[in-house]
Design a protein around this nucleic acid. Sequence first.
DNA 1: AGACTAATAT
DNA 2: TATATTAGTC
Length: 223
Amino acid sequence: MGEEVKIGEYEPNGEDTNGDVERVAEWEIGLPTADDLTPLSQLLIPPELALAFSISPERQRTLIDVNRASQNTVSNLRSVGGGGQLNALSSNNFKSYNEDLARDPMKRISALRTENSGDDPSARTPKRPRLVWTPQLHKRFVDVVAYLGIKNAVPKTIMQLMNVEGLTRENVASHLQKYRLYLKRMQGLSSEGPSSSDQLFASTPVPQSLHESGSGAAALVWW
DNA sequence: AGACTAATAT
DNA sequence: TATATTAGTC
């Protein structure tokens, strides 16, 4: 990092948030896409190589490490400049980063939030659009569940580790219920011939549209 | 109280 | 069918 200061310099005079958003969107274009990034969970130096050069092997980074690093990044961004419009900008940056993690569904959510942020009494109970579990979101979910092990994988923990803005415990609970049914079905069906109706989760095909998602804004952490 | 989960609703 | 909401339990 070290980019935060520059971000601050973009906005010396205050309220022009739209200008910021545009400029941020502009430099985001140059960033690598999520798929180009080396996963943080991957070791940079292969163990054999480290051994050969007697480099102390780097500790395997876990989901928790990555999650913690992510949290630290947020608080660092927030603390830069000690307040004022810079804070708002920083959290905006994080928000868009997080939206890109979750892709479309979260974008829809935040769009809707700003849309009816008025005084409409029904806005007091801002109804979230129903969450769509994109392959990206689902993969994150599956990774976290696998990491936790099925016994520790409860909605709150999963939600926290997934670290997706706007994702609720209820969202996860609902998905988990379905996922458990799927696992159960797999259990009984292991080594049985594929009934050809198993398109549930099995290798979600790969919509091309999801690969080049417009802005090309990169997620900092992806796997 | 709050979280979990199975059942039920949309 | 996918996701949300409810209701019962711990």
